[in-house]
Structure formats: structure tokens, C-alpha cells
Simulated assay, not measured.
Amino acid sequence: MVEKVGDQRRRPQQERSRDTRERILTAATQLFAEHGVGNVSTNRIAAHAGMSIGSLYRYFADKDAILETLRLRLVGELEEQFTAAVLAGMALAPAESFARSLHGIADTLARRRELVRALSPHATLEALGLGDLERRLLILTRGYLLNLLGPLPDAELEVKAYVMVSVGVASSLRIGLEAPSHLDRDAVIAEIARMVAGWLEP
């Protein structure tokens, strides 16, 4: 297939646009983490990114738009990791499956620690505005439990899913963002996974 001249011109421009957008998001993340969201203006973000405020406004309408983009990016990464872990875990023993889920979320949070702290000084799902993510995690967990345990009464299924997601998310937040330096991270995850797997046994 012959590539048109217009397509050849458009590609570098699209790449530059992506690069500029990433510069803005990186600068915002760094400033939010260092100074708090309330103490950072779009002017300051533009200066930190090495561009004019007019250039920044071509990509984001205001600071809230930048924050929402960062939040959605974090949600997407967390959901992708959790979904992959749940699907892979369908054929695994419960302890290994839960450990994979914990690793997936904790590793993402550790990688994005600066972003999480920028979005909220209080690392909870509600403070981070991740309520929708929690609901989707519950749906995935219900599917996993039905696959593992077979049909369950609705009330029992809801309770088990809620407990698993609550324990998993709370543990992942703690391990990913502020795990005690004197403890072996993998050993902690394995112990939590064994505890949950033992609770799931009939």
C-alpha cells in the first residue's frame, strides 16, 4: 500500500503532539507531588514543561483537565493489571491467583507513586476518585469467585467479593506506596494471598 504524502507529514506532527502532551503531564505530576495540587497553577506547569501557557492551553483547557487525564491514566493502568491477573488466575490455585492480583496493583502503584501522591495525599479509593474502578473490580472478582466456587447465594457472593477487593486494594495501596523497608515485599504479598486462599476454602 502506497503511503500518501499527507500521511507522511501528519505522522511527525502527531508524534510531536503526543510528546508535548506527555511533557505537560510529566511536569504537572512532578509539581503536584512536590507542592500539592492547590499550590500549582497552569502557568507554573507550562514553565516547568518549557513552553508558553498558550501552548499548554492547546492541549488542556485548565488544571482540572490535566488532573482528570492523570487520574484516568492511573485507573486504566490499575484496571488493566487487575484484569490480566484475574484472567490468568482462573487456572491457578487461589493463593497464586490472589498474589498475582496484589503484585499487579502494588507494582503499578509503586511505579506511579508520585502520581498517586499528586492526585491525593490520602491514598484511598474514594480520595483518588476511583469509585468506578472499585465497582469494576467487584464485577471481575464475582466472576472469579463463581469460576472458583461454583454457584453461590447472591448475598454470600457479594460479601466474599467485597472482602477480597477491600483486602486486595488496601494491601496493594500499603505495599505499593509505603511498604515497611524492613520487610520482604514478596513475602508479605505471599502471606496475604495464603490468608485469603485459606479463607476461600470450603
Rank of each mutant, 00 (worst) to 15 (best):
A187D: 12
R174A: 15
L173E: 07
P202G: 14
L145E: 03
I66E: 03
Y57I: 00
D7K: 12
S55T: 14
S101D: 07
K4L: 15
R174T: 08
R73C: 03
E77Q: 14
L109Y: 09
L56E: 03
T124R: 09
E134V: 10
S17A: 14
L128P: 02
A27M: 03
R71D: 06
V2H: 15
V196W: 00
L74R: 01
A187W: 04
I175Q: 00
Y59T: 01
L92K: 15
R16V: 13
L157W: 03
R185L: 02
G6Q: 12
W199H: 05
A88S: 09
T29P: 05
D184S: 10
L140Y: 05
R185H: 02
G176V: 00
M51N: 13
T124M: 03
D7R: 13
H182E: 14
R21T: 11
L148E: 05
S120A: 11
L78K: 02
P180A: 03
H35D: 11
L173P: 03
A28V: 07
T26Y: 04
L92N: 07
I105T: 12
V5W: 06
L70C: 13
R194E: 15
A33W: 00
T29G: 04
R10K: 13
R100V: 04
A84R: 13
L78C: 12
L56I: 04
I66H: 02
I53T: 15
L133A: 11
